[in-house]
Design a binder for these strands. Structure first.
Lengths: 332, 332
DNA sequence: TTTTTTTGCGAAAACGCTTCCATCTCGAAA
DNA sequence: TTTCGAGATGGAAGCGTTTTCGCAAAAAAA
C-alpha cells in the first residue's frame, strides 16, 4: 500500500507537508498542495484507517447493536428498515457501521468491552432487550450513544409514537362503529405500555367501557402466541368485533385461528396490525405504518451530533407514523 | 484507557513482556505471565484494535457487501437470514462485520477503495448486482473474498442449488398431475439461468412439451411485475394450471391478479413460490426453502480459510434446500 | 569446577499517521 | 537600511502495539 512517505518522496516534500495537503490544512502553499493531491491521486493513495485512528482517537466507525431476539433479528422488517436508513445516513457523513456483539477476540466478553476494544466513535442501540443490564451499561457508559424505542436517562433517543399509533388505530375502529375492540398487547416493554395508554385513552374518550377480557397479553412477532390469544378471544361469550394485534406479523397467527373458527375477515371479525410491513399491506391489513426512514435518520443525526459535540441534544425525539386503512375493518 | 505501558509499570516489567504474556507467547515465565494477566484483568485492560491492526496488518474485521437492490435490502428475508448466519459464525471466530459501501471519508469512491481504506481482512459479497464492474473489481482484487449465488473465476463461492430447486418444484407439480406448468422467471442472472435449466429438465424428463407462452420474464421481489405477468398467463387461450413464481414475495403480486380474475387457489389454479420465507409458509404456499443457515456458515468458513491461509479451497460449494409442500398445488 | 544450553526478559524499531513547534524565506513596514 | 511578520515547510515526537534480537541468569551438562 502506498503511504504518505511514498508520496513525500515522489514530491520531494516532507511527510508532514503531505499530511497537511491531503487534510486541507491552511499553512501550506497552494501550488504544493495541488501537486501533492494530484500525485496522491495518481498513486492511488488511501489513508490507513488504523493509523489515523490510533493517532486521532477517531475511527469514524459506529457500532450498531442489533440483537436477534426471538429469531427475528435482521429479518424483522421494522428494525431492518430503520437500520437501512440509519446506515445510509451514516455513510453520507463518512461513518461506517459495524455490528456490536459481546465477544472480543472470539472470547465471551460484554457489549461495552467490545465497543471499547473497537473504539467506536458512537453506538446505536436499535434492536435489543432493554432489560439486559449489559445494554444499560453500554448506553450509559459515556460513549456517545442513541437508543431507539427506549429511553435511558442521559442518553438521547428516538422513539416511535406508540401512544398515538394505538390511538389512531382504536379511533379508526371506533369510527367504523366498533365498540367491542380487543387488544392483544406485546411483550412487557415501554413500547407496550405506551400503546396500552393509547388504547385506553381512545376508549375512554369515546365513552366505551374497558373490558378486561378484551385486553390480553401476547408477544411481539410471535405467530403461535397470537393464534392462541385469538382463540381465547373468540371463545368469549361475547367476543370482540375487532382485534388489534401486537404487530403485523402476529396477525398472521391470529388469522389462522380466525379461519379455523370458520370466520371471515372482515365480515365476521375485523383485524388490525401494527408496523406497516410490506406483506401485511399487500393483504390490505389495516395497520399503522411506522416512519422507519425518519427513525433511522434522526437517530443517526443525533448520534453524530453527540459524537462531534455540536448542538448536542440529549433528548428524546418522538416520530409519528401514519394509519394505513387497508380493508380489514368492517363498517358496522 | 489502560495500555500495555500502564500494566508494565504496575508489574515492574517491560511493555514487551506484557505483550507477550497477554498474547500467550512462549518465552516468558509462568509466574510473571499469570501475574501480568491477573493485573491486566484487574485494570480492565483491552487491547487497542487500531494499534494492533497497524502493527500486524490484521483487523479481524470482515467487510460485507449487502446492497439494497430494489429497496429490498436488509428486509429481504433470504439475504438477511444468510447475513445473520454469516455474522454469528464470524463472531465465534473473532471477526467483526462491517458494511461495505462506496464512500471513503464521506466522499464517493469505490467498493474496493473502501475496503482497502478499512483494511478488511476479507470481504463477503452477499447481496449485490454482479454485473456491476465495481463488484467484480472487488471480488478479484486479491483481498480474500467469497461470493454468494454467483461465481467469479478464482474467487470461492457458495451457491444455492437453484437447478435442483426448480426441478423439485416442477416435479412436485407434475406428480400432482399438472402438465400445464408456467414459470415466471426472475431477473436475467445466473440464478435465473440455473433455475430455468431445472424447469426445462423436469418437463423434458417427464416428456411434457415445453410451451414458450408458459415461460415468461418477471423480476425478483417485485409484486407489480408478478401481477402483470400473472394476468398475461391467465389471459392465454389455454392458461396454465400451475404457476411458479420467481420468489415467494412475487407470489403476493400474482395472488392479487388471480383473485381479481375471480379464481381461487388451489382449486382453480395452483401456485408455487421460491425461498421459503416466513410469511409465505404461514399461508401454506408451496415453496422451496433455501438453507440460509448453511449458506451463511459455509461462506464464512470459506472466507476465514482464505484469510488464514489454511486449507484454502477456491471452489464453489453448492447447498441444496428442501421442498415445502404447503397446500397451494391441487391434485389433478 | 567450567562450559554449554535453556529460559526469561528488555531495548528498540517499526507500523502510518497527525500535530506541535522550529526554521526559513520573503516582502512590507519602519 | 534594518526589523517584523506572515507564509510555507520540515523535524520529530508520539499514538499502542508487536517482534526481533541481544543479554543475563539459571539450569544442565561436562
Amino acid at each position: 500500500m502506498v503511504s504518505l512517505k511514498d508520496i513525500a518522496e515522489k514530491c520531494n516534500v516532507s511527510v508532514a507537508t503531505v499530511s497537511k495537503a491531503l487534510n486541507g490544512k491552511e499553512d501550506i502553499g497552494k501550488s504544493t498542495r495541488d501537486k501533492i493531491r494530484r500525485i496522491a491521486e495518481e498513486m492511488g493513495y488511501l489513508s490507513n484507517a488504523s493509523a489515523r485512528a490510533l493517532k486521532t482517537n477517531r475511527t469514524y466507525n459506529i457500532g450498531v447493536l442489533f440483537i436477534d431476539q426471538k429469531e427475528a433479528g435482521l429479518a424483522h422488517e421494522y428494525f431492518s428498515k430503520i437500520l437501512e436508513s440509519f446506515k445510509s445516513h451514516a455513510e453520507d457523513k463518512g461513518y461506517d457501521i459495524t455490528f456490536i456483539n459481546r465477544t472480543v477476540g472470539g472470547m465471551q466478553s460484554s457489549y461495552l468491552k467490545h465497543c471499547i476494544y473497537r473504539s467506536f466513535d458512537g453506538v446505536a442501540i436499535i434492536c435489543a432487550d432493554f432489560t439486559d443490564p449489559q445494554i444499560e451499561e453500554l448506553a450509559t457508559s459515556g460513549i456517545p450513544a442513541v437508543t431507539i424505542d427506549y429511553t435511558y436517562p442521559d442518553c438521547p433517543s428516538v422513539i416511535s409514537d406508540n401512544t398515538k399509533g394505538l390511538q389512531e388505530l382504536t379511533n379508526y375502529a371506533i369510527s367504523r362503529g366498533h365498540t367491542r375492540i380487543a387488544y392483544i398487547y406485546g411483550d412487557d416493554t415501554e413500547v407496550t405500555k405506551k400503546r396500552l395508554m393509547g388504547y385506553y385513552d381512545s376508549l375512554y374518550s369515546a365513552n366505551i367501557p374497558i373490558r378486561n377480557e378484551y385486553v390480553i397479553a401476547g408477544q411481539f412477532h410471535d405467530i403461535d402466541v397470537a393464534e392462541a390469544a385469538t382463540k381465547q378471544l373468540l371463545s368469549l361469550k361475547e367476543p370482540p368485533t375487532c382485534i388489534i394485534f401486537p404487530d403485523d406479523y402476529s396477525y398472521f397467527g391470529g388469522r389462522k385461528a380466525i379461519f379455523e373458527a370458520g370466520l371471515s375477515i372482515p365480515n365476521d371479525i375485523s383485524v388490525i396490525g401494527y408496523d406497516g410491513i410490506q406483506t401485511a399491506k399487500i393483504y390490505g391489513l389495516t395497520t399503522y405504518a411506522q416512519d422507519t426512514t425518519s427513525l433511522g435518520t434522526i437517530a443517526c443525526r443525533k448520534l453524530i451530533d453527540a459524537i462531534e459535540g455540536n448542538s448536542y441534544s440529549n433528548d428524546c425525539s418522538i416520530v409519528s407514523g401514519s394509519l394505513f386503512p387497508g380493508n380489514t375493518v368492517a363498517q358496522i
